[in-house]
């Protein structure tokens, strides 16, 4: 599994598309930094930290990068025919799949934490401050939120074999849960909807952290991520490479 993840990192660093998701999150960080530079007083007076300001746009737009990563996992490899080439090697399908999942999670961590570290550094330069456990918690929550989209995309790519199925259906799940919640219908299922946890990182920045709510958010997002990746794995294991 580690072999696959390592090979994936090596391959990705030579692929311009790899930098797409990271550039997207850095662009968001650039916007936040420009705002703070332009009007530092409002940031300072409202006691809003720069890294915290970045987490919401990351959670809002990050799933696009996450979905792309999940689709690249299987559908792209199939389309290019490189999946069959990899499976000529002494790897089990299980090992290959989880190696790719490992890379996806690593990529999502990079997408969230590299601009976040940049923001922490900028804030240190502007007002002092540094890395806190709250920031780490918030960052991990956003990473898990993005990863749930990656997992859905990966699952749908396994299910529908072709590359369009994964991203479209993962976006569809996101759009469906957003619409249901904002129309205020079927309120009893809101707690299970994915986009309900868009701002769950916020819990870590309240004066008193609500640990119960943090745990619930974590478990729901983990269920989405783990469940979709697992289902994708079982479908992938039973498939043939035509």
């Amino acid at each position: 599994m580690v072999k696959v993840t390592k090979a994936e990192i090596k391959k990705a660093t030579r692929n311009l598309r790899f930098y797409g998701g990271i550039l997207l999150t850095w662009a968001l960080a650039g916007v936040v930094a420009a705002q703070a530079w332009h009007n530092p007083l409002s940031f300072y007076l409202e006691k809003v930290t720069l890294p915290f300001s970045l987490l919401y746009p990351l959670a809002l737009f990050g799933p696009v990068g996450g979905i792309w990563g999940g689709t690249e996992n299987i559908a792209e490899e199939r389309r290019e025919g490189t999946l069959s080439t990899a499976l000529l090697r002494p790897l089990s399908r299980w090992e290959w799949y989880w190696g790719k999942v490992g890379f996806t999670l690593f990529y999502n961590l990079l997408m969230v934490f590299t601009p976040l570290l940049g923001m922490i550094l900028l804030e240190k330069i502007m007002w002092g401050g540094g890395l806190s456990s709250r920031l780490l918690g918030g960052g991990l929550m956003v990473t898990l939120y993005i990863s749930s989209f990656s997992a859905l995309s990966c699952f749908f790519s396994s299910l529908f074999y072709r590359s369009w199925g994964g991203p479209l259906l993962a976006l569809g799940v996101g759009a469906f849960s957003y619409i249901v919640e904002h129309l205020g219908i079927a309120e009893n299922i809101h707690g299970y909807l994915l986009t309900h946890y868009l701002s769950s990182f916020h819990i870590f920045f309240l004066p008193q952290i609500d640990w119960h709510q943090a745990l619930v958010s974590f478990l729901v997002l983990l269920s989405y991520t783990g469940g979709a990746f697992l289902l994708g794995a079982f479908i992938f294991l039973r498939e043939e490479e035509r």
Partner: peptide
């Protein structure tokens, strides 16, 4: 085993 099949393909950008 080592293999080269009819559709063995590689990464175009590498």
């Amino acid at each position: 085993m080592g293999g080269c099949l009819d559709n063995t393909s590689f990464y175009g950008n590498l």
